[in-house]
Every structure is written in structure tokens, then in C-alpha cells.
Design a protein around this nucleic acid. Structure first.
Lengths: 229, 229
DNA sequence: CGCGTGTTTGAACAGTGTCAATTTTCGTGG
DNA sequence: CCACGAAAATTGACACTGTTCAAACACGCG
């Protein structure tokens, strides 16, 4: 489309790229010909057999790749080694409804103005990317939990996570920022099941539940073990 | 920390920012003082009561915001209006195991070299960001499914999604790129349940299942209705 | 003090998981 | 091309977890 259109192009498009079927979908789509040549120079095309592991969890020398054909899977190891697929990659929106849960203060920026800021500050955009990847990581951890863990383990995991994020001064005592109904919506369970699991943890002496929202972790080790279940 | 350290600073840090408790965590962390002043100029701090809706799904004039205090929730509307929480935001990794599912070709780049490319081509980094946000969106859709949908609806959703992504030439007939066991790992169900749901769809005339991996969608409307479950 | 919302508790039921046996599919060698 | 064996998929019976429906309870507010 845009290769040596006006006739006088100096660069020669690598043949592999010129014929590539994901040329306009992949990262390469953002590059002009010269950039594409540069990118081609640092990369190699490899064919891999089914079943091969491309990246190991925690590998610091992780590689990045564009899928030209075939299907790849992203996995997570569950509690006892059982693997769970958390995403698929093939060759080739960001729309939610946000509602304030507790009273909150916000710094609000118009989208267009923020875009200008991003243009002027590449580091900002990079952080935004890191954040998005972090959120993706969270989402996949959640998927793993929803797909594999039972109600008790979900509840325990939830309490630990809330203790980590809500228990700022005191990591043992905190108030949940939401109702049982909202906890249910988050964990994919009914209000009744949430309540039963909470009561069960209370009866076993793992936590105390003062008032409607309060949580006191009495035995963190037990709670962690319940979360692994 | 880094405000007018060396004495001769020209810019004045907005008092709100100087005292901000998420100053070093939020997007602002990437900005030097001048940039912070600029960002402060385009934004306003707002206090919102619990329960208020900040962004509506599909709103084109979506706003971006940094949470200074409080807790927000990201929601998705389920099939019959029931909402499901898919994420939380508080004041203030990217590690998976990737395995090749089918034979595949890849363009592999060393991480460091790719980083250089990103530095030289801002548009590339922007696309990377968009991709990450897209993946996040996918992950949250999946969370919704895992949290709310029953086995039959999950299976139907999965088949529709695979038809969309695998049924390149023919949107009706395609081969699954994975075994029943892998489908189960993806949908958070056992092999047996996957098999039962598949058989059920076959018996009802919704799909045909030639061979071990083949899928033919006989009644897409029925399949879509099953996916809404 | 009573009312309403939200939470807890109980009992019956439906849906999945588990265990186990059978059938089908697919690759290999005859 | 057919036969064989291993791996995967299907099917059935049963236990168990979580949902549903319903009622009792606790707390905050007028």
C-alpha cells in the first residue's frame, strides 16, 4: 500500500515483510518503510512446533513476538500445579461503567488535554502502558480465581487482597468499602454464599467481623491457607 | 522530594500537588515540576459522593482521572441487566507462561532491541498501549463470563468467539485449535462438563461436531441465544 | 419505638465435579 | 489399505457445592 509508492523510494522492503499477512494488523502497522526495515533487522522469523514453551513465567530474558500464524495460549499455574488458560493469541475498547463506591476525591482531566500531555511526555505514556499491563495481570489473576477456586477460597483471597489495599495503617483491622452484595458481584457468588463463607471464617476463628463492614484478621496464616484451597 | 531542590527553581508547585498523597504513585510520578504544573492546569480536583456514576459505558467523551482517595468499581452489565464488578480502583507485571498451541510462525525480537524501537517510534508504543487496553477488555469480558455464566452459556460463548477468530474463510465451519482439556482450562470447567455441553448443543441441532476438533455452526441464532444464558 | 434496608440463617433443589467404564479418534506399523 | 494400540472424548452414576426461595434477625433512622 505505502511501500515505494511515489517511485523514488530508497529503502527496499524485506520480501518477508512485503508478503506478510499480518503486516497491517501487527505492531509493524505503525512503522513507515524505514522503520520496518530497522525492525526487521533486529528480529528473526521462527517456526515453532505445537507444544513448545516460548516464555517461562518469571523469565527475565523474556522475548517479544508477533504471531504470524497459529495460536498461542497464556497460562497460569493454579494452587497445586494445575494450569489454567487465561488468554489466547491469534495472528494479527476500553469501555466500562465506573461508579464511585465510597466517597472519593479525583483529579479529572479532559481526554483531549491528557492526550496532549502524553505526546509531550513519553515517560507518561510508558507508565500508562505499564499500568495497563499491571491491570491486565490483575484481571488474569482474577480469572484464575473465578475459574478454579471454590467459594471459600475466593472469599479468603478477597479478604487478603482487601487487607493489603485497605489496611493502610493497620494491616489487621480495616473496613470493607462495599456491601455483601457488591462482594458477591466481584467474586461471582450470591449474597447468601458470601455471608455463609464469612460466617464460616468467623466461626473458625480466622477473622472477626465487627459491625457490617469491619474485618479483623485473627489468624493470617489460616486465612492464607484458606485462600490457596 | 524533587520540587525546588537546588534552590533556584522557577516554577511553583501547586499546593494541592505538593501535599498530594499519591504524588509518587500516580501518573504524575513521571513528570518533572514543569510538566506537573501543566497537568495541573488542565485538570480539576473533584469530590464525589458514593454511588455516583463517573463514566457510562459507551460514552465517547470519557474522562480520565487519578484517584486521590476512596474506592471505585468497574462494572459490566450482565445478560439481564445484572451488574458484575470486574475491577477495583484504589488511591494511587506481566508474567505468564506462553506455550505454542498449534504449529506457528513468529517474528521474535530481543526485548532490549524492541525497547529501542519503542523509543524511536512513539506511535509504536501507543499501539502497544492500545493493545494492552484491548487485552484488558478481553480479560474483563472473560471474568464476567466466568463469574456469572453457567457451563452451557460459557461453551456457546466460546464457540462464537472461536468462530469469529478461527473461521477466517468460512465463518460457519472451522477447527478448534485445542483439545477438550484445554477448552476446560480456558472456561474453568472439567473435560467432562465441556463434553456434555458440546453434546447437548449437537443434540439440539445447534452445531455439528465432525471429528475431534471440527465445528460447524448450524443455527447461529440459537447459539447466540445459548451464549446469552 | 417501629420501620426499612441489609445481613444472616435454614431447607430444598439444580448444576458441576468426581470417579469409572466405554467408545471414538488418530497415528503407527503391518 | 487395513489393523492395532494409545490417547482423547464420551457417557453414566453419584456426591457435593452453590443457588434459590423463604424466613428470621440486626442495625440505623425517622
Amino acid at each position: 500500500m505505502r511501500s515505494s509508492a511515489a517511485g523514488g523510494a530508497i529503502v527496499t522492503l524485506p520480501p518477508r515483510c512485503a508478503a506478510c499477512n499480518v503486516r497491517d494488523d501487527a505492531l509493524c502497522a505503525t512503522l513507515e518503510d524505514a522503520g520496518l526495515v530497522a525492525l526487521h533487522g533486529i528480529g528473526r522469523r521462527r517456526t515453532m512446533p505445537a507444544g513448545q514453551v516460548l516464555v517461562w513465567s518469571g523469565d527475565p530474558n523474556a522475548i517479544c513476538a508477533t504471531v504470524v500464524s497459529g495460536v498461542l495460549k497464556a497460562m497460569r499455574a493454579g494452587p497445586e500445579g494445575r494450569e489454567h488458560i487465561v488468554g489466547l493469541a491469534f495472528a494479527g475498547d476500553f469501555v466500562e461503567t465506573i461508579r464511585v463506591m465510597t466517597d472519593a476525591e479525583l483529579c479529572v482531566y479532559p481526554r483531549a488535554a491528557l492526550q496532549n500531555m502524553l505526546d509531550a511526555h513519553p515517560a507518561m505514556e510508558r507508565l500508562l502502558l505499564r499500568r495497563a499491563l499491571g491491570a491486565l495481570d490483575d484481571a488474569r489473576m482474577w480469572m484464575l480465581m473465578l475459574g478454579r477456586k471454590a467459594a471459600g477460597a475466593r472469599t479468603a483471597t478477597f479478604l487478603l487482597e482487601m487487607a493489603r489495599r485497605m489496611g493502610q495503617p493497620d494491616p489487621v483491622r480495616f473496613d470493607l468499602p462495599m456491601s455483601r452484595s457488591e462482594v458477591g458481584a466481584l467474586l461471582g457468588m450470591t449474597i447468601e454464599t458470601v455471608s455463609r463463607q464469612m460466617t464460616s471464617l468467623k466461626r473458625r476463628g480466622v477473622v472477626a467481623l465487627p459491625g457490617g463492614r469491619g474485618v479483623i484478621i485473627l489468624d493470617r496464616a489460616l486465612l492464607a491457607r484458606a485462600a490457596a484451597g
